[in-house]
Write a protein that binds this DNA or RNA. Structure first.
Lengths: 219, 219
DNA sequence: TCAAAAGTGTTCGTTATACACCCATGT
DNA sequence: ACATGGGTGTATAACGAACACTTTTGA
């Protein structure tokens, strides 16, 4: 089957930057490409948009196909369309991003992906296409969104915490997302002022040091 | 000549929201479509991206072809790709926006455009495709960008002022761009703090009322 | 003298930032 | 006793928002 047009058409893809926190560090979900170009290179997941699906829907589908990850709320980052960004043909990509919990997530590489793995944002491999640029843009946007206001993005930060958590644990999560250390007292003021924390009147135990108070959060 | 692909490809367009101030009100540059679909409807200028040009370059080219407007710095707004947004075939558009002075600008409708005119943002005609949505997004972004920091977008606001201007004139420009009235004293504090105003030690004359001090701005 | 626009400061609330010491526990 | 992380308050600066009266001119 082939498709013919009177004028040349670019291909359009969606690429998705999926961030998570694992082992206390910010990770991004990458796939290893199974096919050329950039065969065997790592890349952010993505693929061609179908003719009858919305951009965000196509992005979600490609994400699930290549990595097994589904049900994440994607936010559009923008379009990337340098003429030579794909050596095959003209490909314009629309980039999306999301922040998700990943503890119970099972990665399942399929379709164009030989493998799907979480990479530490500080130890990225060489990336296919212009994905390093896209990912850098996404990283910057993530840091902006997490602490400024009580947005959906900020809410999702709490997914990296157990239901009962200490303030030190919460601080570590926000530091990881923001990419810089935060002042302990200022952080505690901020979280108390901006979120509905419930003091559970419980303390951690078994630690080597002073027990910490446990909290939960109501949205 | 025709172009054949193994898989279906969408068409990709760039659409451009060009804002200006004319007669003291915020205007947007629209074209009247010469061809179907939406023949005779008004639309924001735009058209198909060529295979070897960058998105922003294509947007600038389409803008010039259809309206005669050139040399404007475009900022990407995002991609719009609902499957049915174009009745002909699947068309994904990348929207751009800019704020430009228009006093000496000569509009020259050509190519797909029967006409090119400035429309008052408060009196828009029915627009083709999903252009009403795109334009509303652009309008919101414009208001955000103009007053918050000393950005390029904010700089361009001064292009709507004569070289020697009064603070009341400047306030009127910023109010138009922001879409809401500003407090006189707060505005004067803000403009003095954020811009390098030069007090020209001159006053307006010929007005019916108290003369106003004239300023110019250095960047 | 009146109408109309020009000009001018202070207060308050919120937010971000900086910063140092004592406390409770396990070893 | 000591090492380790838990826990706490105050001061300052910057910013945005609210707000009313006097001055100067032409008609």
């Amino acid at each position: 089957m082939s498709y013919t047009y009177e004028y040349p058409h670019p291909a359009v893809t969606a690429d998705i930057c999926i961030f998570s926190i694992r082992e206390g560090t910010l990770k991004v979900l990458l796939i290893q490409r199974l096919i050329d170009p950039f065969k065997d290179s790592w890349a952010i997941p993505g693929g061609f948009i179908k003719m009858d699906e919305d951009l965000a829907v196509g992005a979600a589908r490609e994400l699930e196909e290549e990595t097994g990850v589904s049900g994440v709320p994607l936010e559009q980052l923008g379009a990337y369309g340098a003429p030579d960004r794909d050596p095959r043909e003209r490909v314009i990509t629309v980039a999306f991003m999301a922040l998700v919990p990943s503890d119970q997530m099972v990665l399942a590489a399929a379709t164009d992906a030989a493998d799907a793995q979480w990479f530490d944002m500080d130890e990225l491999p060489a990336l296919a296409f212009d994905h390093a640029t896209i990912l850098a843009d996404a990283r910057a946007r993530l840091a902006d969104k997490v602490t400024n206001r009580v947005t959906e993005t900020a809410k999702s930060a709490f997914q990296f915490l157990p239901q009962k958590f200490t303030l030190a644990q919460a601080q570590a999560v926000f530091e990881t997302l923001k990419g810089e250390p935060l002042d302990k007292r200022n952080f505690r003021k901020w979280i108390a002022a901006n979120w509905d924390l419930v003091d559970l009147k419980e303390k951690t135990s078994g630690g080597r040091h002073r027990p910490a108070a446990l909290y939960s959060v109501d949205f």
